[in-house]
Structures are given as C-alpha cells and as structure tokens.
Write a protein that binds this DNA or RNA. Sequence first.
DNA 1: ATAGGGTTAG
Length: 594
Amino acid sequence: MSVPIRNPTWVSKRRLLEQKISDLHRCSSLNQVKQIHAQVLKANLHRESFVGQKLIAAFSLCRQMTLAVNVFNQIQDPDVLLYNTLIRAHVRNSEPLLAFSVFFEMQDSGVCADNFTYPFLLKACSGKVWVRVVEMIHAQVEKMGFCLDIFVPNSLIDSYFKCGLDGVAAARKVFEVMAERDTVSWNSMIGGLVKVGELGEARRLFDEMPERDTVSWNTILDGYVKAGEMNAAFELFEKMPARNVVSWSTMVLGYSKAGDMDMARILFDKMPVKNLVPWTIMISGYAEKGLAKDAINLYNQMEEAGLKFDDGTVISILSACAVSGLLGLGKRVHASIERTRFKCSTPVSNALIDMYAKCGSLENALSIFHGMVRKDVVSWNAIIQGLAMHGHGEKALQLFSRMKGEGFVPDKVTFVGVLCACTHAGFVDEGLHYFHAMERDYGVPPEVEHYGCMVDLLGRGGRLKEAFRLVHSMPLEPNAIIWGTLLGACRMHSATGLAEEVFDRLVKSELSDSGNLSMLSNIYAAAGDWDNFANIRLRMKSTSIQKPSGGSSIEVDDEVHEFTVFDRSHPKSDRIYKTIDGLGQHINKLTTSS
DNA sequence: ATAGGGTTAG
C-alpha cells in the first residue's frame, strides 16, 4: 500500500481555519465567532492554548463571557498566557471580581504570574474599594523581589493614585523607600498629586527633583490649568526650557475650559506643530459653547489639512455637539465617520446615540442603537435616557427589561434613566418599585442622583409630603439640585409656604443660584405676592453675575438660538413665549379632563 | 509618567 497523500482540499481548509483563528480579533459579529468556534471543535483544535486565547478574546469582545469561560474550561492545563487572556477579558467586561477569582485559581493550580498578569490586575483596581487589592499585589511583588525592577514600583505609584485619596499615603511610601528613583518615578508622583488636587505638594516635588524633563513641566503645567490658575500656568509656560505639542495643548485646553476661546485660538494659531488633539480641543471648545460657525470653519480646515480623525476626536466633538444642540455639525461628523470606516466602535456609537438624542433626533439615535454590533451598558443607558427625556417612558422601560434579558447588568446610571422614564411617564408607583429594587435586587445603592429623581417623581406626581419626607430621611446630604427639584415641585402645586422653607435651606447652604431664584420669584408671582417677587428679582441681578444660569440652545440652519432663564433677547421671543403658554394650557386641559 | 474622548436627576 502506498503512503497516503494528504488531501489537498483538506490542507487548504486547515490553512484557512488557521488564518481565520489568527484573524479572530477582527471579527465584527458574534455569529462569525461562533462559526469559527464550531470549525475549531470539528477540527479538534479546541485544546490548543493559542486557539483558546483567540476565542476567549473574541467572545469577550462580544460580551459573551459565558462562552469565553466555556472555551477556557475545555483546556486541561491552562498556561499563564491563557490565564492572562481570561483575566484581561473579565477586566474588559468590567468584572474585576471575576478577574481576581481567575487569578486566585491560577495561583491554586501552581501557575506563576508573569510580568503581564499584574498590569492586568492593576487595571481592574480603580475606585476606592480596591486599594486593598493594590496592597495585596504590592505585597506579592515585594515578596517575589519584582520591586528591584524600577518599572514595578513606578507602576505601583500610579496604581495607588488611581485609588483616589485612599492610595495617596501608600504611593508616597513606595516613592520614599524606592532604592533608586528615575524621572518617571518623580513624574508619576507629581502627576498623581495633581490628580488628587495636591497642587502645593506637587509643586514642591517639582522644585525638588534633580532633573526635569518636558513631561515634568507639562505635568505641573496641567496642575495649574486644572486648578483654573491660568495666570500661573501661563507664567510657567513661558518659563519652560522646551515646549512640545502637549505643553501647547494643555494651555489651549485651559483657556477653552476657562471660557476664553479668543486666547485659546491665539495659542492654537501660534503652535509650531499640531496634531489631532489641539484641533479636537478647539473644535469641541467652540461647539460646546454653541459657536457653531467657528466650530464648523475649523472642522472644515481640519479636513482640508488632510487630518484623519480618531475615536477621541469624534467622541469629543459629538459630546460637545450634544451639550449645545449642534445637530448640523453632529450630522457632518457622523457622515465623515460613515465615509471613512465600515463600523463605528462602541464608544463612538454611544456618542452618536447621545448626540442624536440630546439634539432631539430620536429616530437617528434609535437606528444607531439597533444597528450596533457590540452594545455595552453605556449604549443601553444612553438610549434609555434619550427615550425617557423625550417622554417615551414606557418604551424606555421596555428597553430596560430587554437589556436584562440580553444579559447586561444595569448600573447606577441605568437607574437614573429608569427613574427618569417613570417620572416622564407619570409612573409614580413603578418608580418607587425600581427605587427599592435597585439595591435589593441589583446591588446598586441609591446615590444622590437617584434621590433627586425620586423627589422629582413624587413632586410631579403631587405627593409633595412624601417628597419632603424622603429628603429629610435620606442618608446622604441633599445638594442644590435636590432642593431645586423640591422647589420646582412646590411651584407646580403652588405651595408657597413649603417653598420658602426650601429656599431658606438653599440660602443657608449657599446653594442658591439664579435658576432657583427665578423659580421662587415665579412662585411669588403666581401667588400674587409682588413685594417678594420684586425682592427676588433684585437679588437675581446681583447673583446672576457670579453664577451662570442654565439654559438650552438649538441649532437651525447653522445658527444657534440660545435660551436662558428670564431671557427675552431672542428676536422672536414674544411668539416663543406665547407658544409655550399655549402648549401649557393645552396640556392642562388634557390632564384635567382625564 | 504629560494634552482631547461615551451614559448621571431640577
């Protein structure tokens, strides 16, 4: 019998599968991944570590962690690479606890962590609770002698600062006891101190350090910018021995955030080298402030300069459009994305949903949402919020239950949307139900935002006493929004006496702003108390200078129309207010007749 | 280790 010749079709099939496996990370749909998984099982390749790594990563990108874990369990003696892949998958899916349980499992089975394992774990540790975990990792790397490698203490400093205030002392300690410090160690300390708002100490270290590089200068510069001290920042900026694109961008952002777009533009024009970031900062700055013409001009220039934008650019500009209702620019950005790539990334789609919803184009928001390949919690939150905002409370609640059905875990933002949906649909009892269920059934303790929603829900539902009781009994300190909401409820039900009580609290806690003042003046006006009305209006004149009042804006044909409290500067102001009054009467008629 | 970036109540 002759030696069997390999079937050429079989060989090419096998090659094709291997190619598919190594391209798994490029798969855009769950079905494709499932198909390849089936082929892997048929070819009996599912016990290979490399194949497992690829499949786990691909399933985790589709949020199919059950499938990812199944793949993992098929492999008998997982190596460190496979463990790392699963750890990273859990971290990516915001499941730090599961990531750690895999890590412990790995230790129990005697597989040693490598230099990749700890960075993945450290990435899972953000937020206050996790400082203990950084401490645990710290102890382990210390025990294994990893701390002799300067890379390790440097990243520990960074991780401790990521724990917020709880980690600051430990970060200082690591820095103090380090055998040797390099510029990165100093810069990490300065950056961390800036992040937690310890600008003074950051500056002391900056002055103390033996050798400063441009990163050191940029970091301390950012500290002054974040503190809003633009004069000090500018002084530093002029003194710097060398400036790079980061230094200039930091200054441009600072002026933009301070509302000084002219100064931001002067520096932007002067920059010797620009990359995407300063362009993004400028366009977003204009867009956020409703300066549609400037934003669009610069956007055109950026396109003409042949710059291809990345996710950061797109997200930043879209969220600025959402703030000021620049639907026109938002649509242009959307069109540019569609031209340049096949599918949007999840964060970009999320930004699009939010932009369309906030600009009032719910159909577009919904079509982006339904067309998404990989939704995440944020996608659901954004669409639930968008539907709620536009009065589709019932639809929002339907999506909430679908979200759970598809295996997504609601978070605190989801419940803000859900409660908001109940308010807008007038579902007071459902709202109370969700409010009680969120901690009990979902492990999400209510925060001040949720109490705010409840005050609004009860207040609008005419259950003013319950709203008051909730505010007085809540375990958290009520903020200006809570009192303002309560004040609004008082106005709605002409409860002048209660309103005064609320307002006293606002004044005492120095939380009164022009919005709340105008609300109180409306209450007096409605009650015919013109003396108090005049009093409040006088007060508004003096406080409105200190505190900017809230408002809304909308873009029509590249022109932005802005509206703030008591503002009648719009040329069609009379007609607008007449229309609003008409609508109000119409609504009253409908609600009293039903 | 430094600059821009998604969802949060009135």
